[in-house]
């Protein structure tokens, strides 16, 4: 099987919609196929990685610890959009996992080099 470059674009906040959780599940399944996977977090999607999520009050499963398991699944290319972070006053210290912060120009290049792009 040839390796393709897969990119998951995450643009929704967690819990308000099901997109974030669905994306995470697809990413974990994709990991079994040994592809070149990148995750991009932009717009409200950067909130998926916010530290300190406590979901007891809304009676929803807190899936944020699972982002820390991605490394064990050999998914290590996590990118966040700098402008989305700034608009939300977030810094890398606010995030659960190590990420690479990219400018819009860098993101454009990253998008262009992909074989498959999946949007959530």
């Amino acid at each position: 099987m040839t390796t393709k470059k897969f990119m998951f674009v995450n643009r929704k906040a967690p819990y308000g919609t099901v997109y974030a959780l669905e994306s995470l599940e697809v990413v974990l399944i994709t990991a079994a196929f040994d592809q070149d996977v990148s995750l991009v977090f932009m717009d409200d999607g950067v909130y998926q990685l916010k530290k300190g999520q406590q979901t007891k009050g809304i009676e929803h499963k807190n899936f944020s610890p699972t982002y820390r398991a991605l490394e064990g699944y050999d998914i290590e290319k996590l990118y966040v959009d700098r402008e989305s972070m700034t608009a939300r006053s977030l810094t890398e210290d606010d995030l659960l996992v190590p990420v690479t912060v990219l400018s819009r120009d860098q993101l454009t290049s990253l998008f262009e080099e992909q074989d498959v792009v999946l949007s959530f």
Binding site: A13, Y15, K50, Q54, K56, G57, I58, H60, S64
Partner: peptide, 12 residues
């Protein structure tokens, strides 16, 4: 709504 702030890690 506080439970929604806590779930999203922004209550503080």
């Amino acid at each position: 709504l506080v439970p929604d702030c806590e779930a999203r890690g922004v209550a503080d």
